[in-house]
Simulated assay, not measured.
Amino acid sequence: MPSAIVVIDLGSGDAPRALDGDPSTQFDKSVTGTVFSKPPQQTDGRPVMLLRPTESR
């Protein structure tokens, strides 16, 4: 399934997919995120693993 942004209408409960398959919503392995200038980690110190929607462990 291609990536998308899901917009939730809290009033009706509808959750349509926006920009479904648009290049701007696709996974890019070259991008790394930071939180307070550090790589994100779990509460026990292990790194956070980001997976493509079609990947599994």
Results as ranks from 00 to 15, higher is better:
Lys29Asp: 15
Gly13Lys: 02
Gly13Ile: 01
Leu19Glu: 05
Thr25Ser: 14
Gly33Arg: 08
Phe27Leu: 11
Leu50Asn: 03
Gly21Ile: 08
Pro16Tyr: 01
Val35Asp: 03
Phe27Asn: 09
Ser30Cys: 00
Asp9Arg: 00
Met1Phe: 04
Thr32Asn: 07
Gly13Phe: 03
Lys38Thr: 12
Ser12Gln: 05
Arg46Trp: 05
Val48Gly: 04
Gln42Leu: 15
Thr34Asp: 06
Met1Trp: 02
Val7Met: 06
Asp22Gly: 07
Gly21Phe: 05
Gln26Val: 04
Gln26Tyr: 01
Thr54Gln: 14
Val31Glu: 10
Val48Asp: 04
Pro23Glu: 13
Gly45Asn: 08
Ser24Ala: 14
Ala15Leu: 01
Gly13Ala: 03
Gly21Trp: 05
Pro2Cys: 03
Pro23Thr: 08
Thr32Ala: 08
Asp28Leu: 04
Leu10Ile: 10
Thr54Gly: 12
Thr25Ile: 02
Asp22Ala: 15
Gln41Cys: 08
Arg17Asn: 14
Ala15Ile: 00
Thr25Tyr: 03
Asp14Leu: 02
Pro23Asp: 13
Pro53Cys: 02
Gly21Val: 10
Arg52Lys: 15
Phe27Lys: 04
Ser56His: 11
Pro2Glu: 08
Pro39Met: 06
Val48Met: 12
Gly45His: 09
Ser3Glu: 10
Asp28Arg: 14
Gln41Asp: 03
Ser56Ile: 04
Thr25Met: 13
Gln26His: 07
Asp14Gly: 02
Gly33Cys: 06
Asp14Pro: 02
Arg46Cys: 06
Gly21Ala: 10
Gln26Ile: 01
Pro47Trp: 04
Leu19Trp: 08
Ile5Lys: 01
Ser37Cys: 03
Ala18Phe: 14
Phe36Gly: 11
Met1Thr: 10
Met1Ser: 09
Leu50Val: 14
Val48Tyr: 10
Thr25Cys: 14
Gly11Gln: 11
Ser37Val: 00
Ser3Asp: 14
Asp20Trp: 08
Pro2Val: 04
Val6Met: 07
Leu19Gln: 03
Phe27Pro: 09
Gly13Pro: 04
Ile8Asn: 00
Gly33Asp: 05
Arg57Gly: 11
Asp9Ile: 00
Pro16Gly: 04
Phe36Asn: 15
Asp44Val: 02
Ser56Val: 11
Met1Ile: 04
Pro40Leu: 12
Pro23Ala: 14
Gly45Thr: 05
Gly21Met: 08
Ala4Cys: 12
Val7Tyr: 05
Gln41Arg: 14
Ile5Thr: 07
Ala4Lys: 01
Gln41Val: 15
Pro23Ser: 09
Met1Gln: 04
Leu51Gln: 10
Met49Pro: 00
Thr34Gly: 07
Leu50Trp: 08
